[in-house]
Each structure stands twice: as structure tokens, then as C-alpha cells.
Design a protein around this nucleic acid. Structure first.
Lengths: 109, 109
DNA sequence: CTGGTTCATATCGAATGTCAATAGGAGAAT
DNA sequence: ATTCTCCTATTGACATTCGATATGAACCAG
């Protein structure tokens, strides 16, 4: 694994969906949002982010449209869909189940 | 991904190390222990378990020796090493950091 | 208007981890 | 003996992630 592997594999979709649940963002905006909210614990690199966005769009969880960034740059904005919101809920529940289970495991003496 | 993908990718090592922290177990014993403690939330299949065990032994986190199971079958018992205990502590802290970060993400409105 | 920097999207190759399916051997049971 | 269960193990396929890199657009300095 890489040196700074901080991303918990399998939770990237959850993080992205959650980031977009409030408002549409462009790619790097999503990355910044995640890094900001988690106080730097997750650093989503482009090589992880964009394949994930494409995959999620293909599955109908996101839709995208070209626009302009805060800095007047060309930027593709991603928006969560209704299907994506259902998926967010699924992944949220999955996370709760998993973190509870691991908690049980760690607390078992 | 598979139908019942319940395992959070990247946490298998943590679960195995923790399972072995109390006492040595053979492969399927580890699998059962994890399934039991987590109330079935994690089902570790052989195709996931044994590659993980070999990998972890190669890294010096585990040592193994042939013995006899509770049912008189030939069984390879895995034991956590001192290095493995340090790794367990690392992974435990990593888990705490990650679950805290995701918690922050999910609670952000 | 030219060169450099930042922003932003994107792709590629390699490595890793997981799973489903399967194999195979060894003890137990009848 | 043959059937069953237990236990270890491998194989092939697949998805995900990462590091590195490429490309292009807008801005700024001189």
C-alpha cells in the first residue's frame, strides 16, 4: 500500500455522496470539502476521485453538467440524484452496521 | 462486488489481529470468532481469510504451527507476535481516526 | 503577447484485496 | 469402504485505489 494510505477502502462513495448531498460541487471542490470536514484525515487524490465520479455517474447516482468555478475556470459540476440519495442512505446504514460491529470486536476482551 | 459484501475492505487485518490477541486459533476458528463477536456482521470467507493469514505471517505479525483442533483434526494454529501486537495497536488507532473522521462527515449538515 | 503558475479534469499502469468457486486431504461415523 | 464433515489452500476474476502523468483553460507578471 501507499505511504499515506489514509482512505478507508470502500468508503469513498459514501464520502462523495455525502459531500454532494448539500449542494453540487465540482471534482476538486468535492475533494476539498472532504478534506476540510474530516480535518485532513482523508485526502482524496485525483487518481481516486475521478474514476469514482465516473463510476458513480454511470450508476446513476450522480449527474454532471459543465459550468464555471468560483475562479472563472471551466468546471464540471456533480449533483446527487434521487437514486444517489437512496444509495447514500444505504451506505450510511452500512457504515453504522460496520462501525458498530468493529466496535464490538475491539471492545471484546 | 459480491452480493453479501459486508466486510469493510481494509479492516480484515485488524479483525484477525484482534481475534488472535487473546489466544491462538486455527483458520476457521478465527473466522468463527469474528462472525460470533460481530453477531454475523462479518463473514470471513476462506478465499479472503487464507491469503490474509499468509500475508500477515510473511510480514511477521503472526506465527503458525501445526496442531490438533478441538475435533481432533489437523489444524494450523496462528499466534500473534510482538510485532503483530504493535501492528494491532497501529491499526486500532487508525480505525479510531478514520471512524471519527467519517462520523464528522456524516454529522456535517 | 509570452511565459509561468494555478486550477481542473482526465487517464494509465501497477498493486492490492476480496470474493466465488473449487480442490484436496484427513479424521469420524455408519 | 464410503460418506460426511472439518480444515487448509488455491485459482481466476473483478473492483478499487494510488502514483504518476497528461492536457487544457484562465490568470498574472513582465
Amino acid at each position: 500500500m501507499g505511504e499515506q494510505t489514509e482512505i478507508l477502502q470502500g468508503t469513498l462513495d459514501l464520502l462523495i455522496l455525502k459531500a454532494l448531498n448539500l449542494e453540487p460541487l465540482h471534482g476538486l471542490g468535492i475533494s476539498r470539502r472532504i478534506e476540510q470536514v474530516t480535518a485532513g484525515a482523508f485526502q482524496v487524490k485525483p487518481g481516486s476521485l475521478f474514476p469514482a465520479l465516473h463510476r458513480m455517474e454511470e450508476q446513476g447516482w450522480l449527474s454532471s453538467s459543465w459550468g464555471e468555478s468560483e475562479n472563472r475556470r471551466k468546471a464540471k459540476y456533480y449533483k446527487i440524484t434521487a437514486v444517489g440519495r437512496r444509495q447514500l442512505d444505504k451506505e450510511r446504514q452500512r457504515w453504522i452496521r460496520i462501525s458498530f460491529a468493529i466496535g464490538q470486536m475491539l471492545e471484546s476482551n
